[in-house]
């Protein structure tokens, strides 16, 4: 079946099977590699993308359900995006595997609450795992990016 959605502001139209996830088709057909499969069951956040502004585990969302939505990924953020800059300045990454998902989740948090408390940051990012344990600096990065 065909699904149409906006990907980082550009219209895309993809041929998908009804049982395929958004993550599968983004990676296979749309050249998106910043969203990554790690747990495959919605608990690690490595596949986080924004669907209509909400952070979503692309490994769980069936692709047809993205029809008509606005999908945003880290590819759509430039190096000068304030959250990206804050992650760079705070050195908030090691291997980088979790980083795009973390950044996407952080942009969603900051869009909703521009000056979050530490508790809010922890709550919002608790579903994004970083096995390298870059959390201290991730926290710092989100504080920096906050208004």
């Amino acid at each position: 079946m065909r699904v149409r959605f906006a990907l980082n502001g550009e219209p895309v139209e993809l041929d998908v099977r009804a049982d395929e996830t958004l993550l599968t088709v983004l990676r296979r057909d749309a050249g998106i590699l910043s969203a990554r499969e790690s747990c495959g069951i919605g608990v690690c956040g490595a596949c986080t993308v924004l669907v209509d502004g909400r952070p979503t585990s692309a490994c769980l969302l069936l692709a047809p359900l993205a029809d008509g939505a606005e999908v945003a990924t880290a590819e759509g953020l430039g190096p000068d995006h304030p959250v990206v800059r804050a992650f760079a300045e705070a050195h908030a990454f090691q291997c980088g595997f979790c980083t795009p998902g973390m950044i996407v989740a952080a942009t969603a948090l900051l869009a909703e609450s521009p000056s979050p408390s530490d508790a809010q940051i922890r709550h919002a990012l608790a579903g994004n795992l970083c096995r390298c344990g870059s959390y201290v600096k991730i926290l710092e990065a989100v504080r920096r990016a906050a208004a």
Binding site: C39, R122, A126, N128, C130, V136, L139
Partner: peptide, 18 residues
Amino acid sequence: ANLSDYQIPSIADIPDGL
């Protein structure tokens, strides 16, 4: 054998005093 039943630390598990 999955990241739900085998938990690894998340940002919520980090002590303030680390």
